[in-house]
Amino acid sequence: MPSLAAATVVRFDCTGLGRCDSSLPAFLLELYRLCSAQGRTLDSEALPDEVASLLALAVARPKRAEVPAATQLAPIATLGEPGHVEDRVAYRVGVCVVSCGKSWNKALDFIGQVVIALGKFVCGRARTRFGECWQLIRACGPDALPIISLVSFLTGIILAYLGMLQMRQIGATTFVPGFVSLTMMREMGVLMAGVILCGRTATAYAAQLGNMQVTEEVAAFRVLGISPVEYLVLPRIIALLCVMPLLTLYANFFGVIGGVVVISNMGVSVEQCYDLIVRTVTPHNLASGLFKSVVFALLIAWAGCFRGMVSGKSSQAVGNAATSAAVLGITLLVIADAVFAVIYNVTNFF
């Protein structure tokens, strides 16, 4: 903005002005504000009529009752001017802590509601639509098979290749089939299935429920006295609980197949592989992965439904809910897997 020096009235010379777009009125509005702040007058006499009227419209105050600032019911201690307060580190840290506390509260509240709903389901008193479970099972189960096949097959290949490279140096390649099958069954099968369901299903749940918040479909359940957790969340949890162990078995199988393909091309025959796998893998190994899969299913369903149910009411908020459902789900999976590793090790359970 140029300096206006000592001028008290700002006039315009519009000779030679042809067509103009919105940048001229936008510039004039800025100029008007600057002049007003400095006690100068803006003379719009020489401006073209349409530009002058646009400027008048932009600077006019609406003739309606001014909306007063809302009263603060629970006043927060003010630290000087609000504009400055927001810049302070302590203020930002405080806001961050308060919002973390609130989201923890929401998470705990939702865990409580889910536990109550599951309890009611076990007692046979849950009010839900079991018919919807079949649709949900179909969406998160069979539809996920192609991607799970690919990812677990490739995981098996990677594990076998790395194992063979290392073990070949000490001539212990016969350990590799057992290593690959154990790793798939105890860790990678369930983890890969879990990560894929986080990406496919948790995000879908968050988006579906978030959209239902936007369209007030969730509120419509509430005003009917029907718990949205029982009616919307419970079928989703049940669907994942049914599907996840089966998908884990499927991922285990394809992972082992991938491993055998590599190993059999690197010096150990398919028959030998079969013998070694059967000798190494016990039902306990299989069960340890399946047990994890049940817990993972709960975590994935919870993450997706939680983010959907606390979603804001805009399209951007629904998008954020879906993204954060995937992030939360995968984080929970990894944490839970680490906890399982410690528990299995300490208790020597599996």
Binding site: M212, T215, E216, E217, A219, A220, V223, L224, G225
Partner: peptide, 17 residues
Amino acid sequence: AMLRHFGVMFQSGALWS
């Protein structure tokens, strides 16, 4: 139980899609 005495029509309709 009291909510069962109410019928609500939301601004957007809020029909279950």
